[in-house]
């Protein structure tokens, strides 16, 4: 295991699209160990994506279980993750290991359905909401060369009243899952 260097803006490599994982072997699991150790080494990050350490494969780690009162699925290693369905939206403040000393408000879906594979290649499926869904969307963006700064709507006060935008039965995109 090793702590790897985290790429930081304006490093152009953060903008490249990552390749799907095709070999679920020991080398993959060693690289995942490095990714996790790197995540743990810095400020309290709830997630990390492989391209942040210069590894351009579709692998992310998300763990929001350390946040009090947040619905979560524990420590997740997600290989080739895909969001299959999303609904609702909310604004929340985000920062990034690759963009030090900057936070901003970003719109994300509030509920997602996610498919992925585990480090052995077995299929995974999750339904997620809130902070965990936000973390997954933030990390998946990295796999497509996107950063939260591409999506910042306001660095200022959250102008939107969350309550007003709560999903209503029968509202657009409000398909029950």
């Amino acid at each position: 295991m090793a702590i790897r260097i985290i790429l930081r803006v304006p490093d152009e490599r953060l903008r490249q699209e990552s390749e799907p994982v095709t070999r679920f072997d020991a080398a993959l699991r060693l690289a995942i160990d490095d990714l996790e150790e790197t995540r743990q080494s810095g400020p309290a990050a709830v997630g990390i994506a492989a391209p942040q350490i210069g590894w351009f494969q579709r692998v992310v780690i998300v763990d929001v279980s350390t946040k009090k009162g947040v619905a979560n699925h524990g420590h997740l290693i997600l290989i080739n993750p895909e969001i299959e369905h999303w609904e609702g939206y909310d604004i929340g403040r985000e920062g990034c290991l690759s963009v030090p000393d900057y936070t901003g408000n970003v719109i994300r879906a509030t509920r997602i359905r996610l498919s992925a594979q585990d480090p052995q290649g077995a299929p995974l499926a999750f339904e997620m909401e809130g902070f965990e869904a936000r973390a997954v969307q933030h990390e998946l963006d990295h796999l497509d060369g996107l950063l939260f700064i591409d999506r910042v709507v306001s660095r200022r006060t959250d102008l939107f009243q969350r309550k007003v935008y709560a999903a209503r039965p029968g509202a657009a995109g409000g398909k029950p899952t």
Partner: peptide, 9 residues
């Protein structure tokens, strides 16, 4: 009054 949870990822 609401908490602001800043997500770092």
């Amino acid at each position: 009054i609401a908490p602001v949870e800043t997500l770092i990822g």
